[in-house]
């Protein structure tokens, strides 16, 4: 099983900025955790797996519009004129 984790690459994918100390700490911990995860390689998987029985009936409600939108001002401090304010996106 491939490892260990390329911490900088994964942090970038996860939109996380990690301190040098966090990177150092995580590197050691991930090594132990991934070594433990390797247990799953031992399992003999059958050729086909019977999926679990699904719940009865349709899971989704009818596709009918309902009032439901929550005005952003009611939960966010970052709103101006009914829109979320963000830093400049276009150079």
């Amino acid at each position: 099983m491939p490892s260990p984790i390329d911490i900088d690459k994964i942090a970038l994918l996860a939109a996380l900025e990690l301190s040098a100390e966090e990177k150092r700490q995580f590197a050691g911990q991930f090594e132990a955790i991934l070594a433990y995860f390797r247990k799953i390689e031992e399992v003999q998987l059958p050729e086909t797996l019977r999926p679990g029985e699904e719940e009865e009936g349709p899971l989704f409600r009818d596709d009918v519009a309902r009032p439901g939108s929550t005005p952003p001002e009611s939960f966010s401090p970052h709103v101006e004129d009914g829109h979320f304010k963000v830093p400049r996106v276009i150079e």
């Binding site: 994964i10 939109a15 996380l16 900025e17 955790i33």
Partner: peptide
Amino acid sequence: RKTRQQGFGAEVKRRIMLGTF
């Protein structure tokens, strides 16, 4: 990145990293 760096604690970052990996 900065909001998530300041807003999340170590265990949450650890699990986000493991899951993303």
